[in-house]
Amino acid sequence: MKKISSSAILLSKSETNEEIYGHGRSSSSLDNTRKLQDIVKQRCRPTSHLEIGEALGVFDQVLDSNPKPPVSSFNSLLISVLGTIKKTHHQNPNLIISLFNKMNWVGGISPDDHTCSILIDCCSGMKRVGLGYGFFCSMIKRGWTVDVVALNSLINGLCKRNKVDDEAKLLDKMPQWGCKPDVVTYNTIIKGLCSLGAQQLSSLRR
């Protein structure tokens, strides 16, 4: 498959400026936003292998657009970047958090429960469980739906920190949030238990 270069898919600066600042701003700006949404859909497919540099270029243009695309476009970009970070062991796993902070700084974008799930997954990968808990609590406070994917990510982060007691507490509370543990949940907890030494396992039995 022929690789699509970032220059081939990103809107040029002149085109972007003309769309946003030129005459007939309303319709032109909407057209520009739709083009960017189409780019995100095209390049964020699982088979597209979006590279970090290209993703950041698309992200900046989406962030600068007016009106802003729906939050789902930003979520797609965050998922693609996170996927690339996991595959390539990128040296800056904090990149997802930085992009999220940029979204908040610009304004006009309302994160949703899916955004928080992505951030929790990112924090778990970085072993920053406390920050992941913060995003999780934000979901609860806002009354958003807590799904098993977000909880599995949080449990995975606890597993990496050998916090088996906390894993068990989350497992017990899952029904309160309308979540049913799945095979990923149990496999993650089993993995956590297997990573403990004999002395730690003995202390759990007590």
Score class of each variant (00 low, 15 high):
residue 123 C to Y: 01
residue 123 C to K: 00
residue 123 C to I: 04
residue 124 S to W: 05
residue 126 M to T: 03
residue 127 K to W: 04
residue 128 R to F: 10
residue 128 R to D: 08
residue 128 R to P: 00
residue 129 V to C: 08
residue 129 V to W: 07
residue 131 L to R: 13
residue 131 L to D: 14
residue 131 L to C: 12
residue 133 Y to E: 09
residue 133 Y to R: 12
residue 133 Y to L: 09
residue 134 G to C: 09
residue 135 F to R: 02
residue 136 F to P: 03
residue 136 F to S: 01
residue 137 C to D: 13
residue 137 C to K: 11
residue 137 C to Q: 11
residue 138 S to G: 15
residue 139 M to D: 02
residue 140 I to P: 00
residue 140 I to D: 04
residue 140 I to C: 01
residue 141 K to M: 01
residue 141 K to A: 10
residue 142 R to D: 03
residue 142 R to E: 04
residue 143 G to P: 02
residue 143 G to E: 01
residue 144 W to D: 03
residue 144 W to V: 03
residue 145 T to L: 03
residue 145 T to K: 07
residue 146 V to T: 05
residue 146 V to E: 02
residue 146 V to R: 00
residue 147 D to R: 14
residue 147 D to I: 14
residue 149 V to K: 15
residue 149 V to S: 14
residue 150 A to K: 12
residue 150 A to C: 09
residue 151 L to M: 14
residue 151 L to C: 15
residue 152 N to C: 12
residue 152 N to M: 14
residue 153 S to R: 04
residue 153 S to Q: 03
residue 155 I to D: 08
residue 155 I to M: 11
residue 155 I to V: 15
residue 156 N to C: 11
residue 156 N to P: 04
residue 157 G to D: 05
residue 157 G to R: 04
residue 158 L to P: 06
residue 158 L to F: 08
residue 159 C to V: 12
residue 159 C to R: 15
residue 161 R to W: 03
residue 161 R to S: 08
residue 161 R to K: 15
residue 163 K to P: 00
residue 163 K to I: 00
residue 163 K to C: 11
residue 164 V to D: 04
residue 165 D to R: 13
residue 165 D to G: 11
residue 165 D to W: 06
